[in-house]
């Protein structure tokens, strides 16, 4: 569970959040929707303690790990797909075997037998996004923060992704910032911004 306790945050003179208190429970996919500039991405970052509020506090148990898929969270262009996967898994204390890697690729629809040793700089936007999902699935996080996750994906990619998060949601807190109809439809709960 993630708890917002009287959280306020402003950028310069613009008050984005004022005295927000709420609880986000696990086992569900929670959509965060709202117009551009309403603070969807910022809400996700607050929830993951990636940024601090000006006042108030965001709380979740210290042993909960976070994973994020967001446009500004880039992966390494001059490493190959497999090197990226292995690196991020290693940071979270996991050593991926060759089978693990192929299986992860399968789950997100990325053929790592062919593209595994290709540097990411040669990947299309959609392939990068699939690789980011593979990293997300590999790191065993308890809290997933997904910012417009399927914006660059084709229908097959979306379908794979929806399946993957539906299957994973039961022991996780999943926040999904989006205005996309199809993405909202798979969510169990909706938070509409601004509050």
């Amino acid at each position: 569970m993630i708890t917002f306790d009287d959280v306020s945050l402003s950028f310069g003179r613009h008050e984005l959040f004022k005295n927000i208190s709420l609880e986000l429970r696990g086992g569900k996919i929670i959509a965060v929707t709202g117009a551009n500039g309403a603070g969807k991405s910022t809400f996700l970052k607050l929830a993951g303690k990636i940024i601090r509020p000006d006042s108030g506090e965001v709380k979740f148990p210290a042993d909960k790990k976070i994973a994020v898929v967001a446009p500004e969270m880039k992966i390494y262009d001059n490493l190959t797909a497999i090197e990226n996967l292995k690196f991020f898994a290693e940071l979270r204390g996991k050593n991926l075997s060759a089978e693990n890697i192929l299986e992860l690729g399968e789950r997100v629809g990325l053929n790592l037998e062919t593209f595994g040793n290709v540097r990411v700089e040669n990947f299309s936007t959609g392939m990068r996004q699939r690789l980011k999902f593979a990293i997300l699935l590999s790191v065993d996080a308890d809290i997933w923060l997904l910012d417009e996750p399927t914006a660059n994906l084709d229908d097959a990619g979306r379908e794979k992704f929806f399946q993957a998060i539906q299957a994973a949601k039961f022991d996780k807190i999943i926040l999904l910032a989006t205005n996309d109809r199809a993405e909202v439809d798979i969510c169990d709960e909706i938070i509409q911004l601004p509050f």
Binding site: E72, Y76, V139
Partner: peptide, 11 residues
Amino acid sequence: AGTLPTLKLYA
């Protein structure tokens, strides 16, 4: 390159 936020998140 935009990888610093990712690195800070995972490490």
